[in-house]
Simulated assay, not measured.
Amino acid sequence: MAWDGADFSKMPPEAVEAFQNEFRMSREECLDELLENYARVAAHTDDFLAELDMDTVHELPKAPWFVDTHWTVRRTLLHIIAETTQHAGHADIIRESLDGQKTMG
């Protein structure tokens, strides 16, 4: 799906709510089921990554923020890890400012 030019303000409210609910634990779900599903997906991801050739090169889409025009699978994976940890850190800073609890130090 191409997201360029998407105007989410024109989405019907029920579509916005359905999208938001994909990131919420529903009353029908329990934590154990969610954690089991997470473990299944993590195992599937590990199996998938074990099969990849990390030196495979792929072309990047044309965009002004890409200095290089090609990345290896390894670089792509490391980029995803770096982005995930950076944003998790941001979320932790916000949580600490809300509840006053520190996870480190």
Score class of each variant (00 low, 15 high):
Glu59Tyr: 00
Gly105Lys: 04
Ala88Val: 08
Ile93Pro: 00
Pro13Lys: 14
Ala42Thr: 08
Ser9Lys: 15
His70Lys: 15
Met11Ser: 13
Asp4Phe: 03
Tyr38Val: 00
Ile81Arg: 12
Ala39Asn: 12
Leu49Met: 14
Ala63Phe: 11
Met1Asn: 05
Ala91Arg: 15
Pro12Leu: 06
Leu35His: 08
Leu52Phe: 07
Cys30Val: 01
Phe66Gly: 02
Phe8Ala: 08
Leu98Thr: 03
Glu28Gly: 04
Trp65Asn: 14
Ile81Ser: 04
Gly105Leu: 10
Leu60Asn: 12
Glu33Ile: 02
Pro12Asp: 05
Glu17Pro: 00
Arg24Met: 11
Val41Asp: 09
Leu34Trp: 03
Asp7Trp: 02
Asp4Gln: 11
Asp46Cys: 01
Lys10Gly: 07
Glu59Trp: 04
Val16Met: 11
Ala18Lys: 12
Arg40Val: 07
Leu35Ile: 05
Pro61Met: 08
Trp65Thr: 09
Gly100Ala: 08
His44Met: 13
Thr76Asp: 00
Met25Gly: 01
Ala2Asn: 11
Leu31Gly: 01
Leu31Arg: 10
Pro12Gln: 12
Asp4Gly: 01
Glu17Thr: 10
Ala88Leu: 11
Asn37Cys: 10
Trp65Tyr: 15
Gln86Thr: 07
Ala39Val: 02
Val67His: 07
Glu83His: 15
Phe23Pro: 00
Glu83Asp: 12
Asp68Ser: 14
Cys30Met: 03
His44Cys: 06
Lys102Gly: 02
Met54Leu: 15
Thr72Gly: 00
Gln101Pro: 01
Leu31Phe: 02
Ile80Met: 10
His70Met: 13
Met25Glu: 12
His58Leu: 15
His70Leu: 01
Val41Lys: 12
Val67Ser: 14
Lys10Cys: 01
Glu17Ile: 02
Val67Gln: 15
Leu35Ala: 07
Phe8Glu: 10
Leu60Arg: 14
Phe48Arg: 04
Ala18Phe: 06
Gln101Ser: 10
Asp55Trp: 03
Asp92Tyr: 00
Arg24Lys: 15
Asn37Trp: 06
Val67Glu: 07
Ala2Val: 09
Arg74Ala: 09
Cys30Glu: 05
Glu14Lys: 04
Ala91Ser: 14
Glu29Cys: 02
Leu34Cys: 07
Glu96Thr: 13
Asn21Thr: 02
Arg74Asn: 08
Lys62Arg: 14
Ala18Cys: 05
Glu28Leu: 05
Thr72Tyr: 04
Gly105Tyr: 03
Glu29His: 14
Met1Trp: 04
Phe48Gly: 05
Ala18Thr: 10
Ala43Met: 06
Thr45Pro: 02
Pro64Ile: 04
Ala2Thr: 09
Val16Trp: 08
Asp47Leu: 01
Ala82Thr: 15
Glu22Pro: 00
Ala91Val: 03
Ser9Cys: 05
Phe19Pro: 00
Gly105Glu: 09
Ile80Trp: 02
Ala39Pro: 01
Tyr38Lys: 12
Thr76Lys: 00
Asp92Ala: 10
Asp99Glu: 11
Phe8Met: 11
Thr72Met: 02
His79Tyr: 08
Ala63Gly: 04
Glu36Met: 12
Thr85Val: 06
Asp46Thr: 05
Asp92Glu: 10
Pro13Cys: 04
Gly105Ser: 14
